[in-house]
């Protein structure tokens, strides 16, 4: 469904992504793990069209989207939950969710999807008239996920959804990700919590200082010695 070929991204002179290639098939959860500064966020931002590439290709269902604007990519079904819970704090929970459906015109379905989001995250329904900035960290994370779902994405990009959450909540977020995937949305998940990510992912890639150094199924990588040492704190 999503294919990245030899992607290169620079920030000035910093070569942040070096010739990376990866594929996400329809229906999969694929995870991209790596240390701080490896280039995970840059990868997702580039897929969403927030960063420019200096070489390489991004294909969505075989069609190049490399030079489309970010809004055009949203229209094609790419939705992102950005790093650090970028809610619109001064707007209400409802307005945040409404913005998630910004490009859609099918009013009835939007309503249905809103109900679905409220069903998935009942706390958001309770807080719908509150400004989003007053939500707790976990609730904000649910809000950004709900907001991303409101565009009816074909593929959902998640950037460290578990960051800064209590362990119980982390587990809940991961189970929600699994649910979303089982309901038919393809997922590319960026995580530092490698063990959790690998446990729900069909396949995984490891990014190290801008290059992909390893890939395989979730299980394979979870068992691999190098991964154990570098990311899972094992020996």
């Amino acid at each position: 469904m999503l294919e990245i070929k030899n992607l290169n991204v620079y920030y000035g002179v910093i070569h942040a992504l070096k010739d990376i290639s990866l594929t996400v098939n329809e229906g999969e959860i694929v995870t991209l793990i790596g240390a701080n500064g490896a280039g995970k966020t840059t990868t997702l931002r580039t897929i969403s069209g927030l960063n420019k590439t200096t070489g390489g290709e991004i294909l969505l269902e075989g069609k190049a989207i490399t030079y489309l604007s970010a809004p055009e990519r949203v229209k094609l079904g790419i939705s992102q939950v950005p790093e650090g819970r970028r809610i619109f704090p001064e707007m209400t929970v409802f307005e945040n969710l409404e913005l998630g459906a910004y490009l859609r015109k099918d009013k009835n379905n939007i309503k249905k999807d809103l109900e679905n989001v409220y069903q998935r995250f009942p706390i958001l329904a309770e807080r719908r008239r509150q400004t989003a900035g007053t939500l707790s960290g976990g609730e904000q994370q649910m809000l950004v996920m709900g907001r991303a779902l409101m565009s009816r994405p074909r593929i959902l990009l998640l950037d460290e959804p578990s960051m800064g959450l209590a362990p119980l909540l982390v587990r809940e977020i991961f189970s929600i990700i699994k649910d979303i995937n089982e309901a038919g949305t393809t997922i590319l998940l960026v995580e530092q919590n490698a063990s959790m990510a690998l446990s729900i992912a069909h396949r995984a890639y490891v990014l190290e200082t801008g290059s992909i150094v390893m890939s395989g199924t979730g299980e394979e990588l979870a068992r691999s010695n190098e991964i154990q040492k570098a990311y899972l704190g094992g020996e």
């Binding site: 969403s48 069209g49 927030l50 604007s69 970010a70 809004p71 949203v74 229209k75 939705s79 992102q80 950005p82 970028r86 809610i87 619109f88 704090p89 001064e90 707007m91 307005e95 409404e98 913005l99 998630g100 910004y102 490009l103 907001r147 991303a148 565009s151």
Partner: peptide, 20 residues
């Protein structure tokens, strides 16, 4: 108007909503 508010709060997040 909502797009204007969203862009003034966070232009990148606004783009991820599909706002030009």
């Amino acid at each position: 108007g909502k797009a204007m508010r969203a862009v003034s709060i966070d232009p990148d997040a606004a783009q991820l909503m599909g706002i030009k």
